[in-house]
Design a protein around this nucleic acid. Structure first.
Length: 345
DNA sequence: GACCAGGTGGCCT
DNA sequence: AGGCCACATGGT
């Protein structure tokens, strides 16, 4: 039996009503938080962006980040019982769940883009042009884009097949949010993720926490800090089951501990510079760097392409549709990833 | 017991 | 610049 006896599950309804901030109903320990926006605990815990969230036997979900643990359960639609103080919710978990963004509105924008009714293009407000825009541009110049495609505001969403697929993906993924996770944990976790399926990633991360993290509760350990992980030799990491990734993880820890990779400072870089800096770590290629940008630094313009998204692109007619969503490419990608991995397409 | 998994580095043209 | 291939280990 693997270390993880609990897997995300459940059937929680999360139909969004109106956009807005969450409200606090009660004080102290067992608070109730009202959240009107997209917020599916089941999907967020089981969408492949965080690997330590679990559904407990009582139907509540447990999230761990840095030194903090949260138990959260949806009592009635949009009403969530949480195990933390109001202060901790406001100072930590609200940001973790990216509640300053309104996903309901973002989805409306995505659908407008899909239907061709959007009046202003994505991706012009912040952090410049994304990597994939250039690729789409290149494809256009080379004439490799299907002539039957739709072209919206100069940004190619793709063929009718792409529009159909993405519309279904948006429906399937509704309720997801891009979690604001710890950059260091994302760096190590996504280095480990290569050539592993999601259950195997969960197991590997949980093993690292148990071996090198410290306890927050009984039988529950933090993800190891750079200092803690730095105490492990490459051989130790191999023994921990990391296989050929052990030297990659070692290199990442070395770079962070030496200051060669200052994760705090990285947060101030623009998307492109951040991406390039992450790529300097051994074992961090294009896909992993984009995952760290998206899940560790909240860079929603980054849309990682893995084997699942590769298949999605094939279904869309062979042209990567995600860069056309500009600032929200990563959110559309996450819907597509969820759709692909839960439909077994 | 195959075959695959949220890929990447190194080596080859 | 682009096409192969090995790579450790666990899931299905």
């Amino acid at each position: 039996m693997p270390l993880l006896s609990q897997r995300p599950r459940g059937d929680i309804c999360t139909e969004p009503l109106s956009a807005g901030k969450s409200r606090v109903r009660r004080e102290k320990r067992q608070m109730i938080i009202g959240i009107e926006d997209d917020f599916s605990l089941e999907k967020m815990a089981d969408c492949g962006q965080c690997f330590r969230a679990v559904c407990l036997p009582d139907g509540s979900y447990r999230f761990i980040s840095r030194e903090k643990v949260l138990n959260i359960r949806e009592q009635v639609p949009h009403q969530f019982q949480v195990s933390c103080s109001e202060e901790e919710w406001d100072e930590f978990w609200r940001d973790y769940f990216d509640l300053s963004r309104t996903y309901k509105r973002i989805r409306e924008d995505l659908l407008l883009q899909l239907s061709g009714e959007r009046t202003t293009p994505f991706g012009q407000t912040s952090r410049g042009i994304s990597e994939g825009d250039a690729a789409t541009e290149t494809a256009r110049r080379q004439g490799s884009i299907d002539p039957g495609e739709r072209c919206i505001q100069g940004l190619d969403v793709g063929s009718d097949a792409a529009i159909r697929f993405l519309t279904q993906a948006e429906q399937a993924g509704r309720g997801l949010r891009i979690l604001r996770q710890d950059p260091w944990e994302m760096l190590i976790t996504f280095i480990i993720s290569q050539r592993k399926n999601i259950p195997a990633i969960r197991l590997a991360v949980e093993k690292l926490a148990m071996l090198y993290g410290h306890p927050v509760k009984e039988m529950l350990f933090t993800f190891p800090t750079p200092e803690e992980l730095g105490r492990a030799s490459e051989a130790d990491l191999r023994t921990a089951g990391l296989g050929y990734r052990a030297p990659y993880v070692k290199d990442a820890a070395d770079k962070v501990l030496s200051g060669a990779l200052d994760l705090e400072a990285l947060g101030k870089l623009d998307d492109g510079a951040l991406f390039e800096k992450l790529m300097t770590v051994k074992g961090v290629g294009k896909k992993v760097a984009n995952c760290i940008c998206l899940f560790g630094f909240g860079r929603t313009s980054r849309a990682p392409v893995d084997v699942w998204i590769e298949r999605a692109i094939t279904l869309c007619g062979g042209v990567d549709p995600f860069p056309a969503f500009g600032e929200y490419a990563g959110i559309m990608q996450q819907y597509a990833f969820y759709y692909m991995t839960h439909q077994k397409m």
